[in-house]
Every structure is written in C-alpha cells, then in structure tokens.
Design a protein around this nucleic acid. Structure first.
Lengths: 221, 221
DNA sequence: ACAAGATAGTGTAAGATTTACACTAAGTCA
DNA sequence: TGACTTAGTGTAAATCTTACACTATCTTGT
C-alpha cells in the first residue's frame, strides 16, 4: 500500500504505433486481457513506474507488449478527462511511434491477449478514449510529413525513391508527380545514394538511398 | 490519507503565460512562498484535483495565482523526469497561455508571494525545470506565428495593422516590410475593418480591425 | 493658417518557387 | 528479340515572395 497526504491520479503511457506496409498505413493494437474493456482492442501502454522517465516507461511498455524496441518515439499529447477510465482517475501521456516495415517482428506479447496490425481504414472500435488519441496522432503525422523529414522513420536503412514516394502517397492519400517529388526530395539534401541498386521485377533497377542524418528529424522549410 | 495499491506520482499543471507589452514579449512569473525553491521565481501552477480535467485545473491555478481568466490556453508538453522535484515524483502537464495586453489585471495572488511580468530578455533563474519549459513554449510560439493565426491572441478586440505588425516583429525579432505585411495579412482573410479609426498622435489616424473568427486559431499555410 | 513632423496607407516589377507535363533507360520474361 | 514494367530525367508557365518609395492625414508649434 502506498499512502499520500493528497489524492494522486494514476499515470499511464499509451503508444500509437504506425507503420506502412502493403500500401497501407497500419496501426498496432493489442487486445485487452483484463477488465475494463476486456476483449476490446486498445493502444499498447501501461502504468508508469516511479523510477523511470515518461519516455523510458513508454519504451518499456512498447517492448513488453509488442516486442518492438529501438524505434522513433515522440510525445503526442496528455489526456486527462476525469472519466476516461472507469476504475480510477487515470492521466495518460500518449506517444507516437513510427517503425520501418522491415523492423516489424512481433514477439508473443506478455500482458496482452493478442497483438495485431490494423489498416487505418478498418481499425476496430477501441477501448477508453483511444480513438481520439489515434485520430490526433494520425492528424499530426499527416501534418508533419509536410514540414519535417519524419517520413524517413518508416524507411529501412536503404530504400529507393519510389518506395519513399509510396510512403508519402499512402499517408497523404494523394498522388504526387514523380519528377517533382524527386526534385524536391533531392533538393532537401537529406538523403544520399548508397551506390547500390535494387533489382526487383522485370524492369530497370532502382538506385538505393539512405538518410544522411538518421537520428534527427529535420524541420524543412 | 489516500492509499493506493501501486505507487502514484503527483500531477501538476504549470502555465507559461505570454503577453506583448512595451515592445517586449513578457512572461508572467510568481515568486514561490514555500519550499522547495522558496523565494525563487517559477511558473504559476499547482496540483491537479481528481475531479477536474487538466485544462480546468490549469485555468483554476491561473486564476488563483494570477487573477487571469478567460484566456487562450493550449497544452504544451508533459515533463516527467524522475528527479524534477526534490519532494516526490511529480509529473507536470505544461500549458501555454497568450493574453492580450489590455486584459492584464493582476489580482493580489493567493498562493504566491509576488507576481511579476518579465521580459524574455531578462527573466530570472527559475525553479525546477521551468527554464526548459519556458524555452519550449517560446520556441513553439515563434514557430506558430508562421503557420497559424495565433498572434491574434495577443491583440485586443480592435487593433490597427501597425500594432499587429509590431507583435510579429517583437516575437520574431525581425523587421518586416510594411506593404508586404499588410498584403499578406489581408490576403489571409482573417481580419476585417471595424469601421472605426484610432487617432493617437500627430499623424494620420489608423483604421481599426477585428478578428473574423476570434475563437479559432486557423492554420495558415 | 501654414509648415514641420509623425505614422498610415498604397503598387509594381524582379526573383524564386511550384506546378504541369511525356518521353527514354534498363532490366525480365516469354 | 519484342513486349512489358518500373526507373529516371528537363523545361516552360504560373504562382508566390520579395524589394522598394512616395503620398495621405492628422497634430502641434509658430
């Protein structure tokens, strides 16, 4: 038992995990194994420990529930409506994670019943206020494509310009002119040719590129 | 005494309050009346009640400590480093408030020893990690001037184009061309002439404008 | 009453950026 | 070797951004 002179809320982290695969923007959800909302799909997350930072806690939950680690994570928003959890007052610090499709290796989850990737178009109804969180994360992602290099976080180490353009088109839901896209992307000076090419299918091979500063999300223009 | 099966952190809100006055961007600070950091300047804020939403709590603290109410408030970021408060684990949800200079009427503060406006150039050393919070709020404010109509939140109901331009120049710390500024601002279609004019000084009177949608911060491209 | 001084208010041309658009290159496979 | 598929490339028009200087209207002092 833990005692405090004044009432304290519980604090959790929830993580909205996106990837791009099969020409779709996908979302990682877990099925809840316990009450409340048992059997409902929800965002991975859980209670913060008192001796870990918020982002550390988010990464721990991410690893425990999904086996995903070492990915890009940014704080999204903090949700604290009084009645958002039926058990007690719970404030959640939501994070957004982007992972390259080649990093997807889901472990057997420990806390959760099941883990699954859902297309944004056909995601199930979610527990708590998680739909609201997902909507905000999605909105922010779309906005950030325009003014930052965040799209690189979906790419594997080496990728072709066509693959990169696919990511933009899938998330923004609009076709882009191939020549203009390439001109724009190369002018940003954020990717470089690796020298390699990808031969895949009955056509001209594509040059491979890699990100120049993989650890930084640059603000562009 | 309040008891929990698992340890809970304390949760506070802190508010970075900006206004523009005397050709400077100013920050509202309170002097702490109790430990820790007694006698140090800090952001207004305090513990969240279990029966109030986060923003409600922020507004309550704002009113209690500074007498300011009914202003623009947006969530900034949540800070939760393990050691940010020497007493116990405290997670703070930081908000940013912008207030028009004509709304500044500081009450005698209840919780605080003293309340004061500080120019961003000469603000004192702050308690806790509040400098970090202020820096982030400042950065965000500068960024938002470029892609939103947030600057209107500093303006009184009626204002002249020169006054509005002053706000931009003060916050961005750069001079802007008068003609281009007016062309740009009027093309945004976010303000309208009220019909009135302001005669003030030995020169041509300026037309007064007001914001068309005062409740919405528009994203402008 | 009129000259001096102050800020308000206005247009245009050059430069930079963005957009629209179509053909050639280099592979595989039948 | 011809058909098919995706990779790769340049240019001109349109739009947006920037630089720049003079007139308008008021107050105040003589």
């Amino acid at each position: 038992m833990y005692q405090y002179e004044y009432p304290h809320p519980a604090v959790t982290t929830d993580i909205v995990i996106f990837t791009v695969r099969d020409k779709q923007l996908k979302l990682l959800l877990i099925m809840r194994g316990g009450e409340p909302f048992k059997g409902k799909w929800a965002l991975p997350g859980g209670f913060i420990e008192l001796d870990e930072d918020l982002e550390t806690g988010a990464r721990r939950e991410l690893a425990e529930e999904t086996g995903v680690s070492g990915v890009y994570l940014e704080q999204l928003y903090t949700y604290g409506a009084v009645d958002r959890d039926p058990r007690e007052r719970v404030i959640t610090v939501a994070y957004s994670a982007l992972i390259p499709s080649d990093k997807i290796v889901l472990q057997a989850a420990t806390d959760a019943e099941a883990v699954g990737w859902f297309s944004m178009d056909e995601s199930p109804t979610l527990a708590f206020d998680h739909k609201k969180i997902v909507d905000m994360a999605h909105q922010r992602l779309v906005a950030k494509l325009d003014y930052s290099t965040i799209a690189f976080k979906f790419m594997p180490e080496e990728f072709t310009l066509s693959e990169l353009q696919d990511v933009y088109e899938i998330i923004l839901r609009e076709e882009m002119d191939r020549r203009n896209f390439r001109k724009w992307m190369l002018a940003l000076d954020q990717i470089k040719e690796t020298g390699g090419e990808r031969r895949e299918g009955a056509h001209r091979p594509a040059k491979l590129y890699s990100v120049i500063n993989p650890d930084i999300v640059e603000i562009i223009k």
